[in-house]
């Protein structure tokens, strides 16, 4: 990157002012040479179904808003249920001070399940608090428009709930089921 700073032939105070300004410019992308946009997604918190027991089969739903409902299970003291939380961060690659929106797709690639001893846990349905997205089925993408972005970095935190089906033949288990989430930025609007 080539920068031309003010001439040293100026008066002393002008030289200082020009030097500072040049340093300020160095932190910004050159006009017309913005970096490529990037998107990152971080998993901030796990989807927690809490502690409970069931005789043979049961289910528990933890929604993205944190409400909990259960069928054929008995909750016990222990970890508290709560939705997963993810943060999407989009770097548009330049410092333009204009409002923009992001059209994104969200995908949970497949059914999340785990077998541990005599216990099988399966999550076949998710929900999020992303605007306009209710149920999120594994393998199906949901498109969302995120509005209100203005700065170079635009972040959105969203929560994911789900329904865990448990089948038990013996004993208990501590389930830790992988829950990958894929976010794709389809367009900057």
């Amino acid at each position: 990157m080539l920068r031309v700073c003010p001439s040293v032939a100026l008066h002393k105070f002008r030289l200082i002012a020009g030097g500072l300004f040049c340093a300020g410019l160095a932190g910004l992308p050159a006009p017309g040479m913005a970096a490529s946009p990037t998107v990152t997604l971080t998993a901030d918190q796990a989807l927690r179904f809490g502690s409970f027991f069931t005789d043979t089969t049961g289910s528990r739903t933890v929604t993205s808003t944190g409400s909990v409902s259960s069928t054929s299970i008995v909750p016990v003291t222990g970890s508290q249920p709560g939705p997963a939380q993810f943060t999407l961060t989009y770097d548009r690659g330049n410092n333009a001070n204009v409002a923009y929106a992001l059209l994104i797709s969200v995908l949970v690639p497949g059914t999340a399940s785990q077998v541990s001893g005599g216990v099988t846990g399966t999550i076949s349905r998710f929900d999020t608090d992303l605007p306009g997205v209710g149920t999120l089925l594994p393998g199906q993408t949901a498109q969302v428009t995120l509005i209100g972005c203005r700065r170079r970095m635009c972040s959105r935190t969203f929560r994911v709930g789900g329904t865990l089906q448990v089948a038990r033949t013996s004993g208990g288990a501590q389930l830790a089921i992988p829950l990958p989430v894929v976010v794709t930025v389809l367009a900057e609007l």
Partner: peptide, 8 residues
């Protein structure tokens, strides 16, 4: 991400 549950 991860989903966690303790089945007692």
């Amino acid at each position: 991400g991860q989903a966690q549950a303790v089945i007692v």
